[in-house]
């Protein structure tokens, strides 16, 4: 059956061993401002970005941006009083279908593409960042890296369960190449830097 037949066929048909090439990270050195580059790329991919000033609170700014959100899940650990729904590992993922807003702590951002790495450690139910109508990611502005090579070295020691790089809100251009924001995942993504 399958397994043995496939492995045997690969063994018979593969070429002699070709060595694995090495990536030279020196090729990607760039003297850029990570924060400015990150901001620009978040906007490019359709997200919005807000850098909190010392006089602004996260709570107020989120309220201002999403005044109509009623069902709110807050996993950001920033002691806001925004949460109206609490969830845990035991929550049925399908019960999240009416969530208006989810707030999640991002671990770090990637300047070259405006993506943020979030992992299961920071939200108890995997479907949360996708099923919520709107998504807010909170990120410390020092936690930025230049490119995906650095990003993978930052997560190389993690406990591997589930994690995702998110770059902007869900989108599609499948009807005559017209870009529409809000496909099957979150309708909007706002990154709050503090």
């Amino acid at each position: 059956m399958g397994r043995e037949a496939i492995l045997k066929s690969v063994k018979e048909n593969k070429p002699t061993l070709i060595p694995l090439p090495m990536l030279d990270l020196n090729n990607f050195k760039e003297d850029i401002n990570l924060l400015e580059e990150f901001k620009e790329k978040v906007k490019l991919v359709g997200g919005s970005l807000k850098e909190l000033s010392s006089s602004e609170t996260l709570e107020n700014e989120i309220k201002k941006l999403y005044p109509n959100a009623k069902e709110i899940v807050d996993c950001s650990n920033q002691s806001t009083s925004l949460a109206t729904v609490t969830i845990s590992e035991g929550t049925n993922p399908k019960d999240l279908q009416n969530i208006d807003l989810a707030i999640i702590k991002g671990e770090f951002g990637v300047s070259e593409n405006g993506s943020v790495w979030i992992s299961e450690n920071t939200f108890p139910i995997r479907v949360l960042p996708f099923i919520t109508n709107d998504l807010v990611i909170i990120l410390e502005k020092e936690k930025l890296c230049l490119h995906m090579h650095d990003a993978f070295s930052l997560i190389s020691e993690r406990e591997r369960t589930f994690g995702v790089f998110i770059s902007g809100p869900s989108k599609t251009a499948d009807i005559e190449q017209c870009l529409v924001v809000g496909a099957q995942g979150a309708m909007s993504l706002s990154v709050f830097l503090f």
Partner: peptide, 13 residues
């Protein structure tokens, strides 16, 4: 031409 897809999901468990 996007710098990365909106979602790059890593499934391990």
């Amino acid at each position: 031409g996007q710098p990365i897809t909106t979602y790059s999901s890593l499934f391990n468990k």
